[in-house]
Every structure is written in structure tokens, then in C-alpha cells.
Amino acid sequence: MRRTSTMPSAPKPPTTLSSSTVIADNASLSGTHTIKIGSNTAIHPRTKLFSGNAPITIGNYCILSERSITGYQSAIPDAEKERGGGGVVIGNGVVIEVGAVVEAKEVGDGCVIEVNARIGKGAVLGEHCRVSPLCIVAPEEVVPAYTVIYGDGLRRLDRSGVKGDVKIDMIGRQADVLRRLILSNPAKFQS
């Protein structure tokens, strides 16, 4: 038998979802700041979004995989607050893979954050970056656009000419498939 807590459940964070957002029933959205999720973004079951320390903004055509954690895990310093730090801002067409921890201030369009990668607090990823599995981006680090982080912290610039619109189109199609697979329940998260 499952024991239910006598405490009232924690208040839901103020959440703004687009009508086309796919969000699984057992994704976890917690915290006190606002969480904003754009259109055609898919959020897998057991994805964690934590806005206890700073708000989270996610763009369009993103995919957030299960067990990934997004949002500042510790309080942001006052200096950051004064600068009007907007918390975690994720651009369009970003894929966050299983188990990744994203505490970045900004993740540019078309970035791919692979399995169990960690983006340190306040880091900034440029457009179309790719963080390979288990790679780590240090806190406050600024990664230029088109960087590939691979191996044991090796970096290179991808100069093969990524077509951003093609990439976002592909992710959009993946999100369409996920729409059919994931049981979406946006009503649960909107108060």
C-alpha cells in the first residue's frame, strides 16, 4: 500500500505552455519561479524542471528526455539577480538527452546536449553546439557557436556548415512522432 503524505502537495510553479506542447503526465515541474515552454516542444516522462531558484524558458521544437534535470540547482548570487538574470533560457530546436543536467544561463538554437552531460551553472552555449555524452561544461563558461565538445574535454569547431533550418525541421518531425507516443497532459501542470 502506498503511503500518502498528510502534507498538502507543494504548490505548482506558474507555468505557461503552448497549445502544441507535448508534456508527459509524470514529468516533474517544481519550484516557485515561472516555467515557460514553447510550441511543439516535447517533454518526456520523468523529465525534471526545477524553477526553485530561477525561472526557466524553453523555446520551440525542443526535446527534453527523461531523467534530465533543467534549472538552477542552487541559489543564484545576488549580483546575478541585480543584472536581471533570467534563469535558464533554452533556444529553439534544442535536444537534451537522457540524464543531462542543464544549469546553463543560455542554450543557443539547435544545441544537442547528450546523455549524462553536465552544463555548469550560468554557462552560455552558442548556437548549434554539441556536448557529447558525459562531457562537462564548467560553470560561467561561454562556449562559442558550432563548438563540439567531445572526448576528455576536447573541443573543436564544426565547420561543415550546419543548416539550422534543416536541423530544426528534423527535430520538429521527431517531436511529431513523440506527440503520438507520449500521453500528453498539459492540464495537470497549468493551474
Partner: peptide
């Protein structure tokens, strides 16, 4: 066609 590295995204286009 091009040769692609699925790990570090290198491509023979480079």
C-alpha cells in the same frame, strides 16, 4: 554523400 562522424560531428565536407 559525405562521411560523417556521429561522435564529434566531423564531416568529410570539412
Amino acid at each position: 554523400y559525405v562521411l560523417n562522424c556521429t561522435y564529434c560531428q566531423w564531416s568529410s565536407k570539412e
